[in-house]
Design a protein around this nucleic acid. Structure first.
Lengths: 145, 145
DNA sequence: ATTCATATTTACGTTAACGTAAGGGTAAAC
DNA sequence: GTTTACCCTTACGTTAACGTAAATATGAAT
């Protein structure tokens, strides 16, 4: 956390702030990556001079980006997710557009769920076959999780 | 399908075979991609002269690769999946190694399931907010799926 | 005063996963 | 016999998502 012993009142950490390395450490990504996300407009932190200052909304956006990455989303795909979180638009066409995107994302997730489940089943079968082969050999020491 | 009006017996399509464009069409990927998967050793089709001939196991491997892609796996990650499907190894250390990989994959899938569920929830909320905003405006025409 | 630790920008380098010609072979169809 | 529809190889090009210096600034600590 960026600790700033401001002029007077040291109480009330009302507005939580993070430095780039705070976020870097918390999420296990490089500062380079975080800056890159800014380069392409996914994050827009404030500045104190040149130094970047991240707020909780920024942190949330980063979280969304990284979750997207774990699901194999490109940064452009994550952009849509991030923009959904960003409550900035109001007009009808934009809202409808957004709804479409939401449906598309839902569809993707649905497909991923199917894929995950079949893959899980495959893994379970592979595991069974593996264990069977193992104790057929005689390696009785169990390898459990 | 590669139709080969062989010498005699036209019956018994015992050994199903696919051409590269068969698979390309079926899965909606370019032949370039399929060849690329071969370049890096993920597929090893037979040859009839220069022409590639794919068998059902090849097809399955391709399916595994593409499923991996949808889940955001790199080709190197998918290689492990494909090798799990390939029933080629027998010795104890290899089997234990394989078991480890299986556990790792299971862990990844578990994390992905978590991510998908939270993201789903987010989408549902975004959708609700969106719809609310819409009929607050007065666009009564429902946009449903 | 100088050493950290952490911040910045600019800019070239890298890897994965193909795309995209360019050039050529074969076999059935017209 | 030449057009059509596939197939092939070699090889350079491209995009995304950063990695990796290099050179510089800044505030706190010794």
């Amino acid at each position: 956390m960026v600790s700033k012993p401001m002029s007077s009142k040291p109480t009330k950490p009302k507005t939580t702030e993070y430095s780039i390395s705070d976020l870097s450490r918390e999420f296990g990504v490089t500062t380079r990556s975080i800056r890159h996300y800014e380069d392409i407009g996914l994050l827009t932190p404030q500045r104190h001079g040149l130094t970047r200052i991240y707020t909780p909304p920024d942190r949330t956006k980063l979280k969304l980006i990284l979750r997207g990455k774990r699901l194999g989303f490109s940064l452009e795909e994550s952009r849509e997710i991030v923009e959904m979180y960003d409550p900035n638009q109001g007009n009808t066409t934009q809202l409808k557009h957004l709804l479409e995107h939401i449906q598309i994302q839902k569809g993707k997730l649905k497909q991923q769920l199917k894929d995950i489940n079949t893959m899980r089943q495959d893994l379970i079968e592979a595991e069974a076959a593996c264990l069977k082969a193992l104790n057929k050999i005689g390696a009785v020491e169990a390898t459990q999780a």
